[in-house]
Amino acid sequence: MEAITSHPAHVVLTFLVAGMVKGVTGLGLPTVSVGLLGLVMPPPLAAGLIVVPSFVTNLWQGVAGGSTLALLARLWPMLSAIVAGVVVGAAWFPGAGAGATTLALGLALLAYAASGLLPLRPVTMGKRAEGWLAPGAGLATGLVTAGTGVFVMPSVPFLQALGLKRDALVQALGLVFTVATVALAAALAREGTLGGELALFSFLALAPASAGMAFGQWLRPRVSAVLFRRCFFATLLLLGAHLAVTGLRRLA
């Protein structure tokens, strides 16, 4: 906990910024939080700290809409595989050192930033492809979640390929991130990482995250969505590169 108590301003500012990004774009709170917190603490500790803010904001996003049951019926193979991936990853990654987890986090951020910055045409998959790709995408997302605390890869590109309308996509992201958060919290609690003190700090982090999200929602109609997303992904690219280099140095 020393990494948290030694950097209170960094932690508060991280959740304010991450909440603002989520308020503007509808996603990014766990990704930005873990990325920025990873600058001053090990990724597993950062992952425990984001549990409450991530769960509350993503649960609200996941149930706010009229498509919850339909999306659950469609996404359950992926959601189940995410849980399985987190369980498997939680058994594999606890022995990894700070260098390995920091490198993994950096690579995950680099992959997500590249997916947002590269001029790739969105691909829409058919029902048959969705049926056999969903478990694989869920399992991979669960493994990445267990190792880094980041839920976005490859879940976001997969959901974008389903051809969902904007509101349904935002709601689907909320459902996927909620399940990933709950699975991650259970894995961290089982490993003894998410103890009482860290859980308290995570609950306290909800306040700046909510404030940042409210500001982001106010800011959303007042900024260029395209420019904001470009700045967001460019920042993630730099952050991911820094963390990857830091992880490599620790491994050397």
Rank of each mutant, 00 (worst) to 15 (best):
P122I: 02
D167H: 13
V87G: 04
L159S: 03
I50Y: 08
M20Y: 07
V226K: 14
A9T: 10
M1R: 15
T101L: 01
F93R: 11
L103M: 07
A244S: 12
S155H: 06
V182L: 15
V170K: 13
L227I: 13
P221H: 11
F203D: 10
L198A: 12
A183S: 09
E191S: 15
L251Y: 02
V223G: 10
A241R: 05
F93C: 02
T14V: 00
K127D: 15
E130D: 01
V226I: 14
A214N: 13
T145C: 02
E2C: 01
G65C: 12
H242Y: 11
A205G: 11
Q61I: 10
T68E: 13
G23T: 08
V83Q: 02
L188W: 06
L227C: 10
H7Q: 12
W132A: 04
A91M: 11
V56K: 10
T31F: 00
L159N: 02
A199H: 10
T25M: 15
M41C: 08
V34R: 05
A234V: 10
A113M: 05
A18L: 06
R121S: 03
R220P: 09
G62S: 11
A64H: 14
L71H: 07
L198I: 15
L79M: 05
G23F: 02
K165Q: 15
M41F: 04
V17D: 04
A189F: 12
H242G: 06
L118W: 06
S202W: 11
L164P: 06
A168R: 15
